[in-house]
Structures are given as C-alpha cells and as structure tokens.
Write a protein that binds this DNA or RNA. Structure first.
Lengths: 346, 346
DNA sequence: ATCAGGTGCTCTAACGTTTCAGCGCCATGG
DNA sequence: CCATGGCGCTGAAACGTTAGAGCACCTGAT
C-alpha cells in the first residue's frame, strides 16, 4: 500500500484527490465542526490512502513553535554522556514525550559555534520548544543564560544559583546522610573516608555535605577524611589508594557514586583486604551494576527514570503556560542495603 | 547582552536594524559574493547584537528537508532501550552529528498512532531527513516499509531480508566463532553450552551460528547444548540453571551477551562451582561492565561507538546523494581475553 | 417574495526562510 | 553622449500549514 513515490504528500495532494480546497482538508483532519461528516470521511480515507503525514516544518512555522522537546546532556566526553544515569533519564523523558506525541531531540555540544552553545541554538531556532537540562556542572554559564532569557527549561538536579528555575531532583544531602548513618549507626563504624566527585558539581558537593552532616549529627566520635575523584572508576581507585595510605585503621569508604566504589573495591582487593570484613564500602546511584559485583554494593537508589518522566511532565506544563507548583520537585530515594557494609542487621 | 525580550529575532528584525532588505541579510549571512563586505560586516554585527538565530522551521520548510537526523531504537521497554549498547551507539552518532551541525532526534515508539509507527512519522513529516535504525528485531515490519519507501535510512546490524539497504555492523558469526575457538582450541574444552538471545533477533541467530560453525570446524569431538534467553541477566541465570541441570560434565558456557553471562555467573556460583576452574564462562559485547566482575569475563568487544559514528557518516553521505560504497560496512571486533575461561595461555 | 441565519466550503494571509530575476547605479569603452 | 556590463541591492515567490474572513447556497420564518 501507500505508493508514495518520491515527492511528499501534502495537503494539496489530498485536496485534489478529494476535490476540495486544502484548507478544507486541514479543517477536516483537525475535526473542525464546520466540515460535514461526509467530507471528513472522504478526507480521512484519502489521507490514509495517500499516506499523508503533516509536514512538521510547515506546521511549526505556522504555529510559531515546534512539537519537539530537547534533552541537554553535558559534553561529548563519553564518560559523562555515556553514563547510565543519562540513559535512565532518557528512558523516562522518552516515555513521557511519546505519550504526548512529541519528538525528542538530544543535544550535547557545548562549544559555541556562533556565540551560542549548540543546545541553546536548538531552543532559539525553535527546533525544540523547551528543554530538559541535565548538565550538572555548576559553572556552565550557558545554562544561566537560558534561564535568564526565560526559555522554557526544566533543570534536573539542584542549581543553587538559579532558585527560580523549575527543577527536579532528589535530596542528595539526605541520601548521603542516610547511607552515612547506615555505616555509623547500623554498623558502628567510626573511621570513614569519603570519595567525592569533582567539587564543581553540585551533586558531589551535596553528597559530601550530607556525609559530614550525618557524622556531626551522629553524636559519636567519628574520624573522617576526603579524597576527590571525578566519578570515574579509575579516579575511585586512585582515591581509595590515597585514603588507604593516609588513614590508619580505616573502617569504611563511602564513594559518591557506584563507579568510584568499584574502583575502590579493586584497590581494596588488591591489598588483600576483604569487603566488608576489613573495609566496608558504600556507593551511590544504583544504576543496575552495583548488584552484580560480589559483594553487592550498598548504595542509594537514584530514580533516574522517574526524574526524567517528572521533568518532561513539568516541561510540558510549562509549555502550556502552567507554572510548576513547587518550583523544585523533590523525588524520594531508596537506601539499598546489600552486602558491602557488613551482615544485615537492624 | 542579547536582550531578546520575548518575541524571536527574525531576518526582518536584523534587516530593519541595518536598514536593508531581509533577502540581503539572508545573503549576507550565507556569505553570498554579491553582497559587499561592508554590508556583511554590518549584518553580522547586528545579527550578533540582536541574538539572531535562524528559525529552523522556516529554513526546513524552504529547503524541503530538515537538518536533523533521527536514531530509532527499539521499543520503550527499558531493558532494551536502556541497554548500554544504545548508549554507546548514541555517543558515536552524536559525535558525528555535532561535527556536521545537525540536530539529533531519538525515536522509539513503535505503536502506530495513525497507521504509521512514530519513528516512521518522524521521517515522513520531515522532522528528520534520515534515520539510523538500531532495532534488532527481524520481525519489525515498519523497518521494511521504510526501506521499501526509499527513505534514507542506515541500518545497524544485519538485516538479511533487506540486502539493498545500507547497513553497518560487525561480523557476529566470526565473533562467536572466535570466542568458541578460544574455548575449544586454547583451553581444550569440548562440552560447551550456548545461551543464545531470542531467535527472532538476527544478532542472536548469528552468534549461535558462529558457535555451531566453529565447533563443527574444530575437528574435535565436541558436545554442545543450547538454552534460549532474552539477553537479560535473569534469563541468563535461568538458562544456566537449565544447561547445568541437563548436561553432565559441562565444561563451559558461552552466553550471547555479557548480561546473560553475569546471570550465568550467579547461578554457577550459587552451586558452589568455581569460574573458571569448574566451569569456563564467556560473554559477548564488552560494554564496560564485564571487566568489573571477578573474574573478568572473556568476551567479544563490540565497537558500538564506532558503529554509531560510521552509521551517521554513511547517512550523511546518503543525504548528500552519495551511495554508500560497500552497501554493508563491516567493522572489526576484538576478542578480549580475561580470566573467566582459564589462565592465559597461547 | 424577502430576509435572517446557518451550513459547508473557498480564499487569503501569515509564519521565516532562501532563491532568483530584476533594477538602478556607476564606471568604462565606444 | 550613449551603450555595456558589473555591482549591490530589492522584490517577489515559494515551501506546507492553519486561522479567519467571506461567499454561495439552503432552510425556515416573516
């Protein structure tokens, strides 16, 4: 069926096929009350037969806005974009976009070709009518510009400098605090190292703060140290090396994400130490792989897919002119207890 | 800078700012030789000052094609789209698209809203001018339709029913054969089970065929059995359970992807068997996680990012009217030997 | 018979872009 | 002094869509 030789089928083609004007076809397809049911039937039949699909450029031009939304992820460096977090986020956004018949663009190029970052151009060119920004770097000035220009964007994560921009996230401070309390209170560990992410990422800062806050609040005499990584496995290993060397009688390592926890695991093992008997280990994120290691890593489950869904949901509201009710939506997280901190107990 | 109140800056705005016609502005910005250097300077200055960004709908409408390309991934079921394979592919495609200043759409909804799958609409509506299709299911009729309609698409993988469509892939049969030979010839194992993927996936079929072919060609008396999984960890575990129960003196398991290999690893371990001493284990894909297990899993490295790059490259050629030189581009793979098949040796 | 109002369509304009023919102008050559 | 032609720009048209004004026809009421 649907011969569709080479040229594309337009309203005009359907119109001549039915023998009416193209505006009538347009109105018929949008179920306008002023078009007779008979004509509508005929139009729908002809459209289906010819394989008519509305041209999105024509439609977007006329409407003054496209039906696509964009997801902006930090730069091409694959250890960032390639992170499972973004994939989960994408799955969520996709689901919501599909439900609304909206197309999804993915934009990732931060370098400024004509004075504007590629992803900002996507909005300014109206290729997409709104964007979900998952760039975590505090220092990305382009994000500020987009927010200041009142472009419809939803941020994923916490952007302290942009208190008025709609955002979706989890309470990272509470998450880190929860896992820290698990180490201190459930397992009685008091000599703990934290491997943080780069401290120009709000996420890394918040997790570190949650860690320190929980230690301080515990009321027990705890000793802690910090090593900074970059969320990669390699950096986690290096950081673990550093803290294992520098802190005597280290009892636990809490890495700011699971990948660094893997790196730490390798380093701990390579020294002949056992997990959790000699060193307890905790991570953060739970993007599917932490359960595969032996022992499974105790971690905070970040509901990335739900974040994506919610972000898209809010963005579509924004595009409809509805202001998000809480400007900052906070989703719940889960503490997932596996074996890396010690035997289960209350 | 860049006040950009609410309305968008168009050619006309730049034109009135400079005091010339909008056509002149258009020509100036595209560096047309018939426009004086002085005027060009003035136009560029005004455009930058006003923050002019060409409206993509207007441009696409005029040009008759958009500057976006689409990546089509199989349906929303997250264990499919969320697979690391697609992330790596996406990274590659993104890199290439960025290099050409093209926007990237991601489409995944197969259900037919108006008689056409969502991702086919993306092409027919000219929201994207070409697509990279990474859907592996043999039975997806929509893919056939798109190819038959001569829409510009590049397939990733092997589509035996579509010999004339441009495609990019690796030689899965050779890959599976290589890893099978590693088991048989390097480690002298002769009682081997294969855990395949669903056999309506060409990839699964090819890997199984490579396995059998290598066994047959080995000239040694080998015994093998098959269990079918669905590429998920759980199914891998179930399949391993099945083959461990049914085949006595089983020496090795070759899973058609790493995730099923993980599942198999869990099952093997739960029976108190050791890897590789009691059972050798091999996987396929090497998407970054197989090196984290202990022992690391011997596998075939699939260059997914390179596949994405190459696919995009070919698609852009296609859009320029250049026919891909080999219709089917085959990229090399690597056999990655870790510890799961036994001690390293020649 | 005339008019009001409704019905079902057509016509026109507009969205922002690019392309192309054309027009006025100046310098040059006859 | 008039043709020639290059230069630098203008104006119009077209891409496909949709909204709204308008027009022809019909029905029913006056």
């Amino acid at each position: 069926m649907t011969a569709a030789k080479r040229a594309n089928v337009t309203l005009k083609d359907v119109a001549t096929a039915v023998g009416i004007s193209q505006s009538a076809v347009s109105m018929a397809l949008s179920d306008h009350p002023r078009i007779s049911e008979t004509t509508k039937e005929a139009v729908r039949a002809a459209a289906a037969r010819l394989g008519y699909v509305p041209n999105s450029a024509g439609r977007a031009l006329r409407a003054g806005r496209s039906t696509s939304i964009a997801v902006v992820v930090p730069n091409t460096g694959q250890h960032v974009f390639g992170h499972p977090y973004f994939m989960h986020l994408l799955v969520g956004v996709t689901a919501e976009a599909n439900a609304r018949d909206a197309a999804l663009m993915v934009s990732t190029n931060p370098d400024e070709t004509h004075g504007v970052a590629a992803y900002e151009r996507v909005l300014r060119s109206q290729a997409a009518s709104g964007a979900i920004i998952a760039s975590a770097s505090i220092s990305d000035r382009n994000v500020n510009r987009m927010v200041e220009a009142a472009l419809p964007v939803v941020l994923v994560g916490r952007f302290v400098h942009l208190p008025h921009a709609a955002s979706v996230g989890i309470d990272e401070i509470a998450g880190a605090a929860a896992i820290t309390r698990h180490l201190v209170e459930d397992h009685g560990l008091t000599r703990i190292a934290h491997i943080s992410g780069p401290l120009d990422h709000q996420t890394a800062v918040d997790r570190y703060e949650g860690f320190r806050g929980a230690l301080a609040a515990s009321g027990r005499p705890c000793t802690h140290t910090l090593a900074v990584g970059d969320f990669s496995e390699e950096s986690g290993r290096a950081a673990a090396r550093q803290v294992l060397d520098s802190m005597t009688d280290l009892q636990a390592i809490f890495a700011a994400n699971d990948e660094m926890a893997y790196g730490a695991m390798l380093e701990i093992r390579s020294r002949g130490l056992r997990i959790p008997e000699d060193i307890a280990l905790a991570g953060y994120d739970d993007f599917g792989v932490s359960r595969l290691t032996t022992p499974g890593i105790t971690t905070i489950h970040v509901p990335a897919e739900a974040l994506g869904r919610k972000a898209a949901d809010i963005l579509f509201d924004l595009l409809d002119g509805t202001a998000p009710d809480p400007v900052h939506t906070v989703l719940p997280f889960d503490l997932v207890i596996r074996e890396s901190c010690g035997p289960h107990s209350g």
